[in-house]
Amino acid sequence: MKYIFLFCVFCIAILLISFESSEFTYPDYFPKPVYNFSQNPLKKEVIQLGRRLFYDPILSADSSISCASCHSQYNAFAHVDHDLSHGIYDRIGKRNAPALMNLAWQKLFMWDGAINHLDMQALAPITHPNEMDNSLENVLSRLRNNSNYRHYFFSAFNDSAIKTEHVLKALSQFELTFISSNSKYDSVKKGLVSFTEKEQKGYEVFLQNCNACHTEPLFSSYSFSHNGLPLDSTLSDYGRVSISLQSSDSGYFKIPTLRNLRYSFPYMHDGRFKTLSKVIQHYTSGIDYSLHLPKELKKPIQLSSDQKVELISFLFTLNDSSFVFNKQYSYLK
């Protein structure tokens, strides 16, 4: 009898664990996430609340734009076709809104790493004058005056008081579910399909020339580096140095992932390149070697025109259409 009881407890525990993790699954070749889930355990109702907030213009001062305005799902949560993203009242910022995916593996956010935790990230666009130009007080008071939100917060947190902590944790939870791990590259990794010959050759070019910074399987080391881009004097954006205050970080920006490039153009922190071939052209013939470059870039990258084509065909195996069309991430009607 005792054993039957223990067996039942075991089965229930397994069921609970699998339910918990069903919101957050990733392939075994991914590293362990860095996000501390014990402080914000995933829960269906919280994720759905985060999803509502993500798409709700209530967060911006004049209720005109939402998170999704600059992070649209069809663009892998980047801002389509804008070099510099624009926010409220058509005000233009100084950087390209980055694509959002695999956020649980990242410690620092924004191109300069100004934000030190996913939970704190949303505070920045909510309050920035060129983005949502709002105040936290105003956001909380609007949400508290909305009976639907009081209901959603209660079912998510058993608390209808609507606190900063819960707003930010809900946004984090929704964003944590943005896992892109279903590209052709992933299918190859899982042994389900093979690369074409061209893609395989491109993979080898990638491993030799790109992987040190855009490290697989996340296709970024998520550290900061200089990629040899000449300064745009109209922006005078020196990146990471403004946060770290270390002169060696001048011109350093967060290394972006190479997943879903097909959807997330234009490229670079200031969106200066519209196409991948322009990006590759930069790495092979556009780098300014007089700049303070990291060791990975000191040796010029030389690629034949065939290798460039092969590299692009490999990079296209990192596109994950099931991610950009996943209905769980879309606007909740």
């Binding site: 402080q39 935790h117 939970d119 704190m120 606190k163 900063t164 902590e165």
Partner: peptide, 14 residues
């Protein structure tokens, strides 16, 4: 504490 994410009460960014 500075890198531990969002907190309530006296540590609320509000």
């Amino acid at each position: 504490t500075n890198i531990s994410g969002i907190m309530d009460g006296d540590l609320d960014p509000l």
